[in-house]
């Protein structure tokens, strides 16, 4: 057992529960950007919990890494998602009941293991954690560390090969069709070009600006 001050206990439960709540909100919010930032919030909360659990280096690296990843995620959402804004209700789920059941069952099973299984009680020493980790990474576990690096390099090459426009079978976008924008044509062709609506003629609300007037546009899709 590790004796901790009350403040640390309170912080642990606060950030732990916050990490789960923000994780849940990822799938509840109706905006893609908000979803990715809730995910980041969940990671930061987990990072704080790791910090409380003395894994200082891991916690900070996790936050550092996820900040960059969520930025990329936000860009991807806006690139690919047809309804990132929640202008229309974002109910893009399938097999919902089965998923809920699966999630609950997993939680019960894993939670039971966590609560009832007997783990050895061998707490870590409170200091020198980062130094020990560094010694380990560049000493005994050098091979693991190097493999991780090699795997990351392979990933970079593979990702670039996959995502670049020219594959070994020629241009990757040959024979593609445009996504469906019209609800009546699920596999429709070109999307309707955004056209100015009649509302642009109406008087402006204060705050909708004219300097870069876009009230008839669909910028809320980013909301």
């Amino acid at each position: 057992m590790i004796e901790t001050p009350l403040a640390v206990d309170v912080a642990f439960w606060f950030f732990g529960v916050a990490s789960v709540v923000t994780a849940w909100l990822v799938f509840r919010t109706d905006s893609m950007v908000r979803a990715s930032f809730y995910l980041l919030a969940s990671f930061v909360n987990v990072g704080v919990v790791l910090l409380l659990m003395r894994a200082e280096y891991l916690s900070l690296i996790l936050i550092l890494m996820m900040a960059g990843e969520m930025a990329i995620m936000a860009v991807f959402m806006v690139m690919f998602m047809m309804n990132p804004a929640g202008l229309n209700p974002m109910n893009m789920v399938h097999q919902h009941r089965a998923s809920v059941a699966g999630g609950v069952a997993t939680f019960v099973a894993l939670g039971a293991v966590g609560v009832f299984a007997r783990f050895p009680d061998r707490p870590a020493r409170p200091t020198g954690v980062t130094f020990a980790l560094g010694q380990e990474l560049l000493g005994e576990s050098m091979l693991v560390f190097e493999s991780a690096g090699a795997a990351l390099l392979a990933t970079m090459i593979a990702a670039i090969a996959l995502a670049s426009s020219r594959g070994r079978y020629g241009q990757a976008d040959d024979g593609s069709d445009a996504p469906a924008f019209d609800p009546d044509r699920p596999f429709g062709d070109a999307p309707p070009r955004p056209v100015a609506s009649k509302h642009e003629e109406q008087a402006g609300k204060e705050g909708a600006d004219d300097m870069h007037d876009m009230r008839n546009m669909d910028h809320e899709r980013m909301a």
Binding site: G16, V17, S19, V20, A23, W24, V26, F27, S42, V46, V49, G103, V104, T106, F107, L110, G111, V113, G114, V115
Partner: peptide, 10 residues
């Protein structure tokens, strides 16, 4: 572990 299980389940 409980919190981890909850994150995993979500």
């Amino acid at each position: 572990l409980l919190i981890a299980a909850a994150l995993f389940a979500v």
